[in-house]
Design a protein around this nucleic acid. Sequence first.
DNA 1: CGTCGCGTTGACAAGGTTCAAATTTGGTGG
DNA 2: CCACCAAATTTGAACCTTGTCAACGCGACG
Lengths: 221, 221
Amino acid sequence: MLVRVKGSSHQPSDGRLAALAGERVFSSEYTYRRGAELFGEGEDAEYVYQTISGAVRTYKLLPDGRRQINSFHLIGDMFGLENGAIHRFTAEAIVETKVRIVRRRSLLDAMANESTGVTNLLSLITLNLQHAENHMLLLGRKSSLERVAAFLIEMDERLVHPDELTLPMNRRDIADYLGLKLETVSRALSTMRDKRILRFNGVTQRQVVLMDREGLAKLDA
Amino acid sequence: MLVRVKGSSHQPSDGRLAALAGERVFSSEYTYRRGAELFGEGEDAEYVYQTISGAVRTYKLLPDGRRQINSFHLIGDMFGLENGAIHRFTAEAIVETKVRIVRRRSLLDAMANESTGVTNLLSLITLNLQHAENHMLLLGRKSSLERVAAFLIEMDERLVHPDELTLPMNRRDIADYLGLKLETVSRALSTMRDKRILRFNGVTQRQVVLMDREGLAKLDA
DNA sequence: CGTCGCGTTGACAAGGTTCAAATTTGGTGG
DNA sequence: CCACCAAATTTGAACCTTGTCAACGCGACG
């Protein structure tokens, strides 16, 4: 899980990204189309991003095309600061997505004068690190059912337990996040549906209703 | 890969850990026996560590005992700062290990006054993050042979390409690092031995000679 | 000299992948 | 608004990589 702003108000320059350095940072907004690339692996890490609406995936690729998604960045999440000078992964909009953009340099400069800024920044980045550590445990040691359960629990928590989970990403994205194949994700979801732990709402399969959160938690290790 | 000091001189208060804040940080040293715990998951993260000699493993456990090792910390590596107030994983000495210890608070305080300190600290932590990102790719998308090859390449690079790789950890540690079972690690190593990519020196199987680094690199994705 | 930790190897089982096909859903243009 | 086509999802069956279980070898050490 990454940094989120509760309530996610949408005025320009709002949210943690600016607040971190005491509002003395200039930010701009930009909207990306579904599938558009925000930045690519190896590019200069000139900007830091925060999702205003929509969803973003960050991933790495192997030469033969195998893909590992690091994280999904939902509304309020900050990303792109994870590295020094160069982006270590690619970021793409999963759906149409609006982001707040701050120049990395100006964020760091503003931070340097703030006494609390360093600690805030530190805790911000370590949130990313914690997410990565938890995800390594999932990727290294959990079964397919445990992975999908953990994914649903993560999404449910990040969206603050909505009645209906609307997944912005497709099965392939979920699979590449969980280190599985999309068929395996689909089978796990079907198993959970048959166990009456969840059901799909309406016609689409992206609207999930968690009917038994306790049972779901028991499926995760 | 984590932070290392080239050459690894062993005087007290030497190395990046102190240098980061301009030498105005007090550090002490401590030696742990093989298998001893430096800190446990959930404990207060009061100190930051740097390996002077020996090797450390950091890991997370699932309730049923499945273990995922995050990283191996060799000579010069810094660790324990990855989190805010509480350690998110356990650290244990793999062999008898000497570490330099700095109080987290004093490091941050000293840093706050340094203009370059913030940037240094940032790049320090993002190294951990980069390692985690690369490891997620390995755990999520690589085959057993690719994982073991990547592990050997990582160790080889971190020990600056020695004639003979001396692995401080056993097969189970390697397996828990790579998200495999120890038998699978053993089989992969045997395969590489049969392919004359490496050989074992002397009586033990912890001394590895890389006979064909190019061939090894081709085994990694 | 017996035991213990560590590592290797073999035979078999199992979970997840691959390949294929059917079905549904979403988007686009007429 | 409807028809059509592409993309997404589900499901089945065979296969394969890795895990499981077991046996064995070897060196260290009491």
